[in-house]
Design a protein around this nucleic acid. Structure first.
Lengths: 339, 339
DNA sequence: TTGTAAGCGTTATCAA
DNA sequence: TTGATAACGCTTACAA
């Protein structure tokens, strides 16, 4: 309703042809400077805004990037989105954002919605339920530039951005070993996820290298219900053979551990040391402060956006080749691992 | 590139006219069941996806809602977005999300970008710098349905959703008084914001009612630099006449207070009690756990989306009248206010 | 019940 | 340097 003025009306106002006005606004070389000036000033005066649908229909471009994440209430993903948006805004791109809530059915629906030109490209991190990737293959085959970050999909031959999951988990686990831990558990949300596999590999390598036992019950596969996770962790901590160290693959499980321990006689770090992949700014304020493996979330977002927009605007100079680009995390040692 | 099939090609494949196919896909009453079946099955087989630009151009609808927030790394706004998205997804709407980073210039640019039909409606929370609202008035005058939440703009005669800022701040302050506080400070990020004004009114009323002194230095106006805020709060806590209670209008200032106190001999809650508007799930894990005024963020998001989509789909039944709808917060008492 | 044709607001091609 | 016209893919009067 109401709506603004369109090109035809603007042209009529100027007593010029629509095509002339269009060219003037697009700074075409074939238009005189004087006409350009007149057109631009009138356009501003009348607050002319070109219709994006008409333009999109003509040019087959939406100047929009779709971002699909599994969770919004999560500092890591929030920071990645800020990174993406920073680059996108600067280049005049808009962001359609979708949260799958870790639900692969929602993910499929969302991906299907993107097959119609609503977005020029897609950047995503898959849900923890995603094992069948046919919907992603369909998207890829449509020719939409697609890249993954963090939770990547190795079946799709495109560029992926991750942190050094293996090495960070290895270093983190080694840190616990150096602090005297003998029985170290690993907390994860889904065995299917790329990040889980890599982080678990790093953890396992450090355990093996140190000659420590690898109790099966110490590989704890959690889910997305906080209450259940707290229960699972509590059970593990009250079992006969309880761990004295924990490597948590995701932030929420470290917090669940804090909840599980709360009100019990288990003390962190004296009885239990914990290190976690985490990006919360509150790590330093927890009780005790949490040792974290902090991911370069903003940088990951920026790099995703740079590559994708590069590919969209200068296809000859950018190629989304099948590769994994790694940006290292930082381990920040706090009280939860130092007795 | 690549791209899918279009309506004309689909029609050719079926040996039908494009209009017939269009009607069949839109489940028009004038098409026979048999034709509909054929069309739909062929559309699925060929994975036909209608072009959104063409449709938008025809119908002047984008099925998209723009959401503008001042900050993304913030549980309150993340929850509001989840609430909006839940309703929007169910109704087939997409979300364009913009972060102003509390910068009014960015806010203006973003608002200007929305004048061209990219979104059918806008839901926003203004930046803390926003005092000149001419850009918002322009948006409103264009006829784009616009609603505000949390940080509202009273100059625009539309519907706004907030929590009971006055009452919650009053109750929270009273809680501190009941816990024995005599000198209560108020932390805020910007005097311009609607929420600041209302929360400050509630705080002031409780202070006055209890006959407590109202030291000017106790109204601490902070900004968006965490380091600076920690310094400001530290200065206040080390001054001659230091407060024994704090009401924080926003979460980040409560966290800044925790940082300011860390490593000093000031103990919470013994020497200083603190209550804060906050939506972080970590409130219970802080040291000590933080008493919070928790806003109904998801509900606020859902209500915004319901009203806006109602207005878009059934304009006769929904009116964005000039009113403020209040959804109450919950005070959750934890250790930071109980000695 | 199905087909024909016009038009949404741009931009690109061709002509003037 | 500017103007007229067609085309992008869809929906909807109007015809058949």
């Amino acid at each position: 309703m109401a709506a603004g003025i369109n090109l035809k009306e603007l042209a009529a106002e100027l007593k010029l042809a629509p095509s002339t006005v269009s060219r003037a606004l697009n700074d075409s070389y074939e238009i005189s400077e004087e006409t350009k000036r007149k057109v631009i000033s009138m356009a501003e005066k009348l607050n002319y805004q070109p219709n994006q649908f008409a333009r999109g229909l003509r040019e087959n471009k939406s100047k929009t990037i779709a971002v699909i994440i599994p969770e919004r209430i999560n500092n890591f993903f929030a920071q990645v989105m800020d990174g993406i948006e920073e680059i996108a805004q600067a280049q005049g791109y808009h962001l359609l954002i979708y949260n799958t809530h870790e639900d692969v059915d929602r993910e499929k629906k969302i991906v299907n919605l993107l097959l119609n030109g609503r977005a020029d490209a897609v950047v995503m991190s898959v849900s923890s339920q995603t094992s069948d990737v046919s919907h992603l293959e369909k998207l890829y085959r449509q020719g939409l530039p697609l890249i993954f970050f963090d939770r990547i999909c190795s079946e799709i031959p495109t560029t992926k951005f991750i942190t050094n999951d293996y090495q960070s988990a290895y270093d983190g686990t080694k840190h616990l070993i150096q602090q005297g831990c003998k029985k170290i558990a690993f907390l994860m949300i889904s065995k299917e996820l790329s990040i889980t596999k890599e982080r678990y590999r790093g953890y396992s390598a450090a355990i093996k290298e140190a000659g420590l036992e690898k109790e099966p019950a110490f590989s704890l596969n959690c889910n997305h219900c906080d209450e259940e996770n707290i229960g699972l962790i509590r059970d593990m901590l009250w079992s006969e053979n309880r761990p004295d160290g924990i490597v948590s693959a995701v932030e929420k499980l470290a917090l669940a551990t804090y909840h599980a321990v709360k009100g019990t006689k288990i003390r962190i770090p004296e009885d239990l040391k914990i290190i976690s992949f985490a990006n919360t700014t509150m790590a330093g304020l927890l009780n005790p402060s949490l040792t974290t493996i902090t991911q370069p979330a903003i940088t990951i977002g920026q790099e995703c956006a740079k590559l994708l927009i590069g590919k969209l605007t200068k296809p000859k100079h950018y190629e989304l080749i099948d590769q994994v680009i790694t940006i290292p995390s930082k381990i920040i040692i706090r009280s939860s691992t130092v007795a």
